[in-house]
């Protein structure tokens, strides 16, 4: 991209942006439903929110932000025609994604060991549904990043043609973005 002049289209394939919009809409509806349902069950939500592990959520937020940052670096590298650098940053990003999955998995393990499930109460229903839906997006995002990383390692992208990297990156940032709202909304706001 050259200096001042702006683009008409966002980076990556336009189709991924249509997909991102659809995904944001789904998450938006979920967040709104959470907020308004809480308004009718304030005590319940405030009580059970305290049972969530904010430290785990902190680690996970840091993991996703860091991961997103690594992906930004990967894109910067491929724009400088550095496939190896791009591959390494993507690998690092995937490592952070994995950390997220492990930490989230441990949180689930804790809840399940207490016998908590979707039918325990409305708060847990939302907490489990929202975070698990997001969890699946992390998995999907990692699959996409992995495919991009493998292609980058084989030298499949260049400074001239790297739409694939930008496409994967845009999706991954969306996964990060959604968590930026989810974290305060479900773990902190009271």
């Amino acid at each position: 991209m050259t200096g001042m002049e702006k683009n008409r289209w966002p980076p990556g394939d336009l189709v991924i942006w249509i997909f991102i919009m659809a995904e944001l809409l789904v998450f938006g509806v979920f967040f709104t439903a959470y907020a308004f349902t809480r308004a009718h069950n304030v005590e319940l939500f405030d009580t059970y929110q305290l049972t969530l592990d904010r430290n785990a959520a902190l680690i996970n937020t840091l993991a996703l932000i860091t991961s997103s940052y690594f992906v930004v670096r990967a894109v910067a590298d491929i724009r400088a025609d550095d496939s190896r650098g791009c591959f390494r940053w993507l690998l690092a990003a995937l490592g952070m994604g994995l950390l997220f999955l492990v930490v989230k998995g441990l949180e689930y393990k804790h809840h399940f060991s207490l016998g908590i499930d979707l039918s325990t109460n409305t708060f847990y229903m939302f907490y489990l549904s929202l975070t698990f839906f997001h969890f699946l997006h992390v998995v999907l995002g990692m699959v996409i990043l992995l495919a991009v990383a493998l292609k980058a390692r084989k030298g499949g992208y260049s400074a001239a043609e790297h739409t694939g990297v930008e496409t994967g990156a845009s999706y991954w940032h969306m996964v990060d973005l959604v968590w930026m709202i989810l974290f305060p909304l479900v773990y902190v706001m009271r």
Partner: peptide
Amino acid sequence: TPAFWQWWGSIFSAM
């Protein structure tokens, strides 16, 4: 079926 389907069904099918 369990009550959480009210939410899951509504939100996902609305999409």
